[in-house]
Design a protein around this nucleic acid. Structure first.
Lengths: 348, 348
DNA sequence: ATGAAAGCGCTAACAG
DNA sequence: CTGTTAGCGCTTTCAT
């Protein structure tokens, strides 16, 4: 009789495949096979094993499985933090996509490590998970090298990797910015300012370029002072807007690099006693959920963050299934969502 | 010469304690001791081992460590989802507190499992982490039994466990609601409605009771129709408010069970062409970050969500250090934050 | 103070 | 189709 000589009724402690093996009179490798869906197992055996596993309340020990070289059925998602809505939406999308798989997700927030996220990556390729989704605006290239070196499946979200060796899911940042700017122009604005994101961030650059191209294409002279750099967080939008409003030749419309900075702009504008959109139009980028609860509701460029998360999962799982598949890049469309924060420019 | 016969320079593959042992000429048990901070190791040995570990770029394999009975230095945090700001703040607080420890956090979202979160709990007590923070409004008692059975360290956030056997961090829900309601009363309101949360949720109940007590204490007759039940999400606040506004004897103030539902109320009120706070006052509960970006800024009851997260971590770590310590309950104070969504009731 | 050896729970050849 | 046998990387007695 085994150590576990209790009356085979309810588990008194951890149930392992060995327990199942004994109970169902097979070797534990067979149990392992059944549990892993191995084809060539007699059906009756399979049933029996499955039944006892169930009866005993077996829960696989992921660590052991992973240690022994199996898979974890976990995918990791690395994010800087949860404080900006943008990330939350992507995570939500990923989570949604995972429901339909038999994978679970674990989320790691790295913001406290400023560039040391590679620590995480290291533990990841130590097989804490089967694949990685990276949502990290400012990427320290060390990662990618590690990941490649280990041939570890991963996908970059909204982020560029010049080497072309990464799976990437992003959206049409340039086009979205172009459209946003054109929208403002079509409304009659010409004095259009842009609050840009940090230059280290690819999407910020793309959006700035989109803005510039739209202006140029419509033969509107560029005013360098109309471009001010923020950091994608709300306070920077506030400060940027203050500068803009201080100008003698104050802009009549602002295209913020993302919604958060647009909210900052709202504050600054309101504080000056100006009205949106009567006195000044504001358009954002992202369409985070808060865009709907601010007043007036924010006109913005929608990128389906949730969809990005979903697609990222899809790509990642495919990569895991088929490690040989060459990396792909999927770019999702953006779209201007008209709400209440912009209106036609009259007079002047 | 070992398998790993590369020129002991940069790792060509995973570095294990065996590698370190060979490089520094000690047994791998000694390496393990050093790495775990065991006291009785000769100092020179310790230095040498540490140095080579560093040079080789060693990263501990958490899985193996855990399997062998060691600790993971990971604490898990179980949340329903990330879509309501409330959770995000708690997570942020927990994350913040963890910076100062040498623990890492992994976050599991369970919303897709509706009550099956016990799956997670099971894998947790399988030592995927050293302790658990549970932020799950509707608790299916199965958890707690499992957790107790395994003597697994955990703390409940904003949630009650009648057995008194759990660590709990929560805030003064009753008092906060009482204060909010009293605040409205002091402003001259008497027709005060309350949008409550689901009755399955302890904090929702406490808030409702606080509201009732305040009304009673001020001798204001209770109107059952003034209490409508939502689910803590924005749409339910919208619908609840529609009902309220349809009443012939329409309330002049609304105390929403949380900020999200208050935002729903905003929408409904605005849609009716009414103004906040001129026509109707609104007060929320939670003080999530969005309370500041809505217009008008939401008057609400602050509970320091971030602090709750921080305290939860503190309690949990202490519990992990000292498993014998009896469970504690820490209740944080709440406070009415006056902003722009309430004003004195005049006339009527 | 340190080495040897057992074993955590599981997967994956390798034999039959 | 199924059992046997190695480990995976690490912690932990038990010796010395």
């Amino acid at each position: 009789m085994s150590i576990n000589n209790n009356s085979s009724h309810k588990q008194s402690h951890k149930v392992t495949i060995v327990d199942i093996a004994e109970e169902s009179g097979v070797s534990y490798s067979t149990v392992s096979r059944v549990l892993n869906g191995y084809e060539f197992v007699k059906d009756s055996t399979r049933q029996r094993v499955l039944a006892t596993a169930d009866r005993l309340g077996y829960v696989a020990n992921i660590q052991a499985r992973s240690l022994a070289g199996g898979k974890t059925n976990i995918i990791g998602i690395l994010v800087p933090g949860l404080d900006n809505g943008y990330i939350g939406e992507i995570v939500r999308g990923a989570d949604l996509a995972l429901v339909q798989s038999n994978y679970n997700m674990v989320l790691y927030t790295t913001h406290r490590f400023e560039g040391k996220e590679s620590i995480y990556v290291k533990s990841f390729y130590n097989h804490l998970c089967d694949g990685l989704i990276l949502v990290i605006p400012i990427m320290h290239s060390t990662y990618l090298d590690l990941l490649h070196q280990e041939q570890f499946p991963y996908v970059l979200v909204d982020q560029n990797d010049k080497t072309g060796a990464s799976n990437i899911v992003d959206s049409t940042n340039w086009q979205g910015a172009y459209d946003a700017t054109s929208y403002l122009i079509k409304l009659g604005h010409r004095k259009i300012a842009h609050i840009s994101g940090l230059s280290e961030i690819g999407s910020a650059l793309d959006r700035r370029d989109g803005y510039l191209s739209a202006m140029t294409d419509h033969n509107i002279p560029l005013n360098p002072d109309y471009i001010v750099v923020g950091d994608f967080y709300q306070p920077s939008g506030y400060e940027a807007t203050e500068k803009l409003l201080d100008m003698v030749d104050r802009p009549t419309a602002i295209f913020a690099g993302n919604d958060l900075m647009a909210f900052g702009a709202y504050e600054a504008i309101r504080q000056r006693g100006l009205r949106i959109p009567e006195d000044i139009s504001v358009i954002g980028f992202d369409n985070i959920p808060q865009a709907l609860i601010v007043y007036p509701k924010l006109t913005t460029v929608r990128q389906s963050l949730e969809q990005m998360g979903r697609v990222a999962v899809k790509v990642l799982l495919e990569q895991i299934e088929n490690p040989e598949r060459p990396p792909r890049r999927i770019t999702l469309a953006t779209q201007v969502v008209e709400r209440d924060s912009c209106r036609a420019y009259i007079g002047g």
